[in-house]
Simulated assay, not measured.
Amino acid sequence: MFRFGNPEYLWLFFAMPLLLAVYIYLNIRKRKDVQKLGNLSTLKMMMPELSLKRSYLKFWLIFAALCAGIFMIARPQFGTKVETVEKEGIELVIAIDVSNSMLAEDVSPNRLARAKQILSRLIDLRRNDKVALIVFAGEAYVQMPLTSDTQSAKIFLNTIDPNLVPIQGTAIGQAISLGMSCFSGDQEMSKAMVIITDGEDHGGSAVDIAAEAAKAGVMINLVGIGSPDGSPIPATEYGSNFMTDSEGNVVVSRLNEQMAMEIAQSGGGFYVRADNSNSAVRALETQLDELQTGKTTSLTYSEYDEKFSMLAWIILVILVLEILFYDKKNPLFRNVRVFK
């Protein structure tokens, strides 16, 4: 595929016919002025070193350089450019709770939407890390394996909703266990997990599993989202009715900060509650910056490869040739009949 990065500069080609017309007009005037001095054939005999064809050639070289220059500033691009980039970061597994309780609206616009905003901001800040993405409710699933392509992580993050996990619940322990399997065997890179949840764990083993992860060198951090006072859960993501239990009472979901803090403490990390500010992101960034980084290489792809440098070399060659050609015949090449 071929395109111009700045096609608006191609409009300059409309000025080239005007430049050519001005050059022809000036040459006609010059010829008439010379004819006033006498017959052209006689004048040529009086100036044997003069070569009109050389002056014409110099003009066309300049004209060609200008045309190539217009193409160059329009930035021709084609093909796919592949680069090997060396980064220095950590391995980071992000686990996000997608249970129905995450639809509660005690944070704006709701817990799940706010969680995705926080994680999107965190991914932007951790662009040198390798990132994996896990979703969990009653079960946990790998949404994206460990990769240095953090932009893909943001794309996957935007697609997350409660329908991804059919079994309801908040299996934080299973999410930690699955996250452990996502890490590589690279011992030089620090490893950490960030779990964002409302803390209503239904598994009961998350504290013990977090302790095992800490022994394996993985730091477990929790971000609590929601309010300890609780909030009703909408029956649908965009509905106005609320979920009820078997007795018809409205279900109220409360942030379990005590359990979240216990998991984080057992996992050697820290706990922070998310609100409508960026304080949770700043706290996470500070915590993760303290970890030892390691070097990793990855391939990056860009859809178009810049080719203006090729035109720059062509322009340079043209201008050098224009300088080398004299307006008059060179005595060193008197017998060379390139220009008669």
Rank of each mutant, 00 (worst) to 15 (best):
V82C: 03
V93K: 04
I176S: 09
L40A: 05
T150A: 04
I96E: 01
V272T: 11
S227Q: 01
E139S: 13
D275V: 07
F14E: 08
Q117D: 11
P331M: 04
I134L: 02
M16D: 10
I233P: 00
N330E: 13
N6A: 13
F63R: 06
P145N: 03
F71C: 14
K329D: 13
N163D: 15
N39Y: 06
T159W: 03
G226R: 08
Y238F: 08
S181H: 12
Y9L: 08
L119Y: 00
E285A: 10
L133R: 01
V82Q: 08
P331E: 15
Q168S: 13
K36E: 13
I94R: 02
A206D: 08
L288Q: 05
L18K: 15
V336P: 06
G248R: 09
S240F: 07
K295Q: 09
T296W: 05
M219V: 11
A210K: 01
Q258V: 08
S246P: 02
L157T: 00
G185V: 01
L164N: 03
K340C: 06
M144I: 02
Y9Q: 05
K191C: 08
N163M: 12
L12P: 01
Q265P: 04
S266C: 03
D161G: 15
Q292F: 04
E49K: 10
L157C: 00
A104N: 07
S298A: 11
N278I: 10
L157I: 00
I62L: 15
M193N: 03
V85D: 06
R29L: 14
L255A: 06
E8M: 09
P232S: 11
V252S: 10
F71K: 02
G230F: 08
I123Y: 00
A15K: 07
R114A: 10
A153C: 02
S231W: 06
E105L: 05
A216D: 12
L92M: 07
Q258P: 01
S101V: 07
Q77I: 10
T80L: 13
T300K: 12
I318F: 14
N100G: 10
G217A: 12
V107Q: 05
D106I: 04
L10V: 11
P234L: 02
V252E: 09
I70F: 09
E262A: 15
Q143P: 01
L146T: 02
E8I: 10
N221H: 14
M193Y: 04
K36N: 10
S298N: 07
K329N: 10
D208N: 15
R54C: 02
K116E: 11
D186K: 02
E306N: 14
L50K: 09
N330V: 07
E247T: 14
Y56C: 06
Q174L: 13
G5I: 03
G138D: 02
S41L: 11
R29H: 12
T297Y: 06
E91V: 03
F308G: 04
F270I: 08
K32A: 13
A312Y: 14
L122H: 00
A113H: 02
L133V: 00
D201V: 00
